[in-house]
Design a protein around this nucleic acid. Structure first.
Lengths: 238, 238
DNA sequence: CGCTTTCTTGAGTAGATTCAAGTAAAGTGG
DNA sequence: CCACTTTACTTGAATCTACTCAAGAAAGCG
């Protein structure tokens, strides 16, 4: 509960009636899901959106021949699955990357919410829309940056988003992704990710150890990424 | 006016008060913009969203060294620039690909709209959110498909969207993009686009002639694209 | 018509893949 | 806690895709 309410209150200054509506939205108890489980399958009909209380999610799509692209990483505080409002069938799958605590928001309750507390509905939609900024950055990454640049960019983006939410601090950030999953974010092979990480490690720029990312030389990583962080933060991150 | 109102009426069944609000939104006259002009620059503050009455727009982002990625193509009937509501500065540029007639929707009027006619505001936001489905498909395209597959996929997507809006019919569709622009959609070089188009032409699959795309063998093109059209249409296109 | 932009085509190159083999790490069940 | 199984990671060599550079042809535009 608090996660979503806190975000919305920062933007809106809610009335009592509105907080009531909001509380009714997450009548359901938080659901704990273990790592690497699929919450919503491609083409399935979703019944709930989720507020992520803890843990990481990935939105991804798999082609018929097995190639997979991760479209977006969702961190604690994000609202995932709002697309269920606008599409009958999920165009992409949503899976846990770590164990997650998810607070379900029943999608059918949204319609009532739009009627009875439109400011909240609008705020959630606009918040979701803000999040989509990340997708465009990923498009640039996939389309117009070379693989090492893409990797550096992904690492910087995650570090910034983690910092912004107070989930970690320089130089050490949580990093639950496997190299295979990183490969699926970047559109490259896992072998290539391994080679690129070795190069970053040997150059003393950054390393992944255990489930942590250690950024040893942030300037170098920023340069390697051509990172322009405008799209993270109040104005960009969701 | 009619473009947006027609779309919304299909979904909503508007009251008189609501159509009034909608009409007030486009108090301003349609603006004609010639081809290859930038409507909104990267990092600029936008004052209006736009309903595209006619013409094609591209959303794109340019890196410091000049590499450019087209993020999305917008066709007549689309609403562009709603992201101005959620971001102070534009994270990407918006430019005309052809001469366009654009109906400005002042962004500051949106806030009143959300208060006074929330159903309309919500409908516009949800419509925008639906459009974002295309971005995810582009991510898959850029990340996990080879260049010829990507090209075929782009052509199929455009053909379907054009058909869906009644702007063209098989086997001949409007195609105002230059090969350089296609390259910027696909994340490849213009030379490579030229080569791939030659190959499609020589195989009798599809050709671009003048400013038209002629799909000679739709099955072959669909196969070449690995095209899965679920994301176009009522449930996906915006 | 001349000028610019767009397109075409070729040859050589670089970046990332594939395939293959082996090592390390993380779970699982006794 | 250990042996076993599985998954994740590493590294190398050969291959292929798409890029770069270069130069010329065609198509638009004033």
């Amino acid at each position: 509960m608090s996660a979503l309410r806190a975000t919305l209150e920062a933007a809106l200054d809610l009335s009592d009636g509105e907080t009531d509506h909001l509380d009714r939205l997450h009548a359901h108890a938080a659901r704990t899901v273990s790592a690497r489980r699929t919450i919503v399958s491609q083409n399935a009909r979703a019944n709930d959106a989720f507020v992520i209380a803890s843990g990481w999610l990935a939105e991804h799509r798999t082609l018929k021949d097995g190639r997979r692209q991760i479209l977006n990483i969702r961190l604690p505080g994000d609202v995932a699955g709002v697309d269920g409002l606008t599409h009958c069938k999920a165009l992409f799958a949503t899976s846990t990357l770590t164990e997650c605590e998810l607070i379900p928001l029943p999608l059918d309750a949204f319609h009532g919410l739009m009627r009875d507390a439109p400011r909240i509905g609008t705020a959630i939609l606009m918040r979701t829309l803000r999040t989509e900024a990340l997708l465009r950055e990923w498009e640039v990454n996939l389309g117009r940056r070379g693989a090492p640049e893409r990797l550096a960019h992904l690492l910087m983006e995650l570090a910034r988003r983690i910092e912004f939410r107070g989930l970690g601090e320089a130089p050490r950030y949580p990093m639950p992704l496997t190299q295979g999953e990183i490969a699926d974010c970047l559109g490259v092979t896992p072998e290539h990710v391994s080679r690129m990480l070795r190069s970053l490690r040997e150059d003393g720029v950054a390393r992944i150890e255990g489930k942590a990312l250690i950024v040893q030389d942030e300037d170098a990583l920023t340069r390697a990424a051509g990172f322009e962080p405008r799209y993270i933060g109040q104005d960009g991150d969701g």
